[in-house]
Amino acid sequence: MAVNRDKNSYTIGFAVVMVFVVGTLLAGLFMLFRPQIEANERFEKQQNILYALGVNLNSGPNDVAFIPTDIVSAEFAKYITKQVVIEGDQVIEDDNAFLIDVKKEATKAKNAAYTRKLPLFIGQKDGKNIYVVPVRGKGLWDAIWGFVAMDDTMTIQGVYFDHKGETPGLGAEIKQRYFMDDFAGESFLTGGSFNGIAVAKGNNDPKNLIKDDQEVDALAGATITGDGLSAMLQKDVKLYVPYFKSLNN
């Protein structure tokens, strides 16, 4: 071989060329696939919102089955009758409110001059208006998020939670039916004031039969995920309290 492969200059040159080639290739492929990936993420969001609303394909007691992706857009349009964005005192109707990135809005809202855009999805179930709000917070390892469906008294009708990297078998159980189903029936309000809902250890109500204690039974071994979930509900749902108050006036 003519080239001396042990020379430092050759090694560095090779590394530079390789990084350039690989970088270009991956960037190109990402651009190529991006529309498809974004469409998938949109479908997932619609599936999650519908799930919280109670529109799903659950059959067994442990199923978490979503509306299939190919019909989810049509179902979403059917069940979600109105999407609004709340900006301060204003409530603006916006059919793409579900595309608002809750994470980005939370970051922007750290600047006091910025009015955070709060998406809200209004659906109909059993003749009642149901309001679905997105929530996002921190678990033990990474982000946790979800959707909470409530009636106009802020009593939960259904929830959906998901996580990025909670421990399988412990924190990751927040997306299991037995945990999510416990939330239905709990209310965020006591006597008109917002109290949140706590994921509580030792609340002597493991079957969650008491619905007015504003507590659901925690998951064993997932203290920090549970606390993060309580904090997420406390912080994000509270933002919507003025809207719910205006509904009942």
């Binding site: 492969r5 042990d6 050759y10 090694t11 090779f14 590394a15 390789m18 990084v19 690989v22 290739l25 991956l26 492929l29 990402f30 696939f33 498809q36 990936i37 998938n40 993420e41 479908f43 997932e44 992706t69």
Partner: peptide
């Protein structure tokens, strides 16, 4: 392949291919 960075080059090749697989799955089997 320069022998000094042989293992790194191998890692880059695997990592690139794995990212491609990941992208394809995200796009077509979400």
């Amino acid at each position: 392949i320069p022998s000094k960075i042989r293992i790194i080059v191998q890692l880059i090749v695997v990592a690139t291919l794995v990212i491609i697989v990941d992208l394809i799955l995200k796009a077509f089997a979400y």
